[in-house]
Design a protein around this nucleic acid. Structure first.
Lengths: 227, 227
DNA sequence: AGGAAACTTTCATTGAGTGTAAGTGTTTAT
DNA sequence: ATAAACACTTACACTCAATGAAAGTTTCCT
């Protein structure tokens, strides 16, 4: 059963949506507090997020941006703001659908089903700057082609992506590959890192692994444009 | 540069769309003859199809259905029919977007860009009844999980998916695995088929491989509902 | 019943992925 | 400038999943 989380501050609307979606066979929750919405959403990790733009405290746009940066969860924006520029902005941030309230029940349900269908089998994808990584198989999607990474390389890349631009320690990496930090084989880790670097550059990925002497490693972009 | 193909019978509209999309930096073509539209589209294999519903000869719905059955090319339906039931039907057939004419240029371009973005790295996916198969890596997406098929099993499944419900001969299968029909090793093929069958059933896939004595094999659904 | 086609199981071979080992470079502090 | 610590590279041997060979069993059809 697919799991949908609603982000909507107006109580009546929220309950109506909950009701409608439950009856359509979805498991539904709604965010109750509007602080840390993104964190709440990420920890609930639903199959779909239904997002209003006018919220107390935070901007819906901001939430959408953060969700899209940190996950591959589909976002359906449902709002009463029917300005074209809002729509364009939301789509540009990666929203999967933009509907304006009021909205026919059938249309909403159809769009919800459609988005979910499109995302079938796309959970568990991590996003990099210019690629996607399947966390289960370590299949890497880049430049319209796909490549399977060897398990160790996949695990390493996974850690880097989860950490974002932060520094990753050798312990983190050993933990990811071998499940323990005891008896660290610095050398084996080194070899695996070298292999991943080689793979990344041969695939012309925009991000590179650089070492931070004495501390660990981190992902950076080619020259310009940190976010 | 992304490649878009337009299916629209009205000349003025067609030219305007072509112009607009070209200026936005896409490579654009339009279908000129409205017979065998699906075949034309498949052989052009664009990154996106812009589809009108009212066409001479064929139904736009039919084209949409066929495209979605035989490929994973995104389809954006752009039509002057703004009946809700048309929209629901199109979405149900797997259309990725439904817009009604007239439509603001910015909105159209935004939706086009949005759909293309969502499909990034999704080319080369074949659709089965309840799963997707990556043709390059033979990564299989089903029930929200992903599995890598051994190369031979992947090649076999690929042939079945391309053939649809038609019968596949042993020659076809040998050709797919070993690139030749000479020196067919019936037994090796047999073993590989058995392995694929085992994999498919352990993944609880809705489709099964059944043998057609003396001819070959084909994919069928559990009991009911051929399309 | 009997022959042909389809299927199953077991086992040896193979090759990509991995860790080991023994190097070579590079940075930093004195 | 030099040494010591850290970072990187290369070559090789081992391992395990994927494959095909072989031999046997089951199912189908006349």
């Amino acid at each position: 059963m697919k799991y949908i989380v609603i982000v909507e501050d107006e109580v009546f609307m929220r309950e109506e949506l909950k009701d409608m979606l439950s009856k359509a066979g979805y498991k539904v929750d709604a965010v109750e507090s509007f602080e840390n919405v993104t964190e709440q959403l990420l920890s609930l990790s639903p199959d779909l997020i239904l997002l209003d733009l006018n919220l107390p405290c935070v901007s819906g746009f901001q939430i959408c941006r953060e969700i899209k940066q940190k996950s591959a969860i589909p976002v359906l924006v449902l709002t009463s703001r029917d300005q074209l520029r809002d729509e364009l902005h939301a789509l540009d941030l990666g929203a999967d659908e933009y509907l304006t309230k009021p909205c026919r029940k059938e249309r909403l349900l159809a769009r919800v089903a459609n988005v979910l269908k499109r995302y079938e089998g796309r959970t568990n994808l991590l996003e990099g700057a210019d690629f996607l990584l399947d966390r289960q198989t370590y299949t890497l999607y880049i430049h319209n082609q796909s490549v399977i990474l060897p398990k160790n390389q996949g695990k390493l890349l996974e850690v880097f992506l989860i950490q974002g631009q932060d520094i990753v320690t050798k312990d983190d990496l050993c933990l990811a590959i071998w499940g323990t930090t005891e008896f660290i084989d610095e050398n084996a880790l080194q070899v695996n890192l070298t292999r991943l670097k080689k793979t990344m550059s041969s695939l012309k990925m925009r991000q590179k692994i650089v070492s931070v002497r004495g501390v660990g490693y981190k992902l950076t972009m080619e020259e310009n444009s940190y976010e």
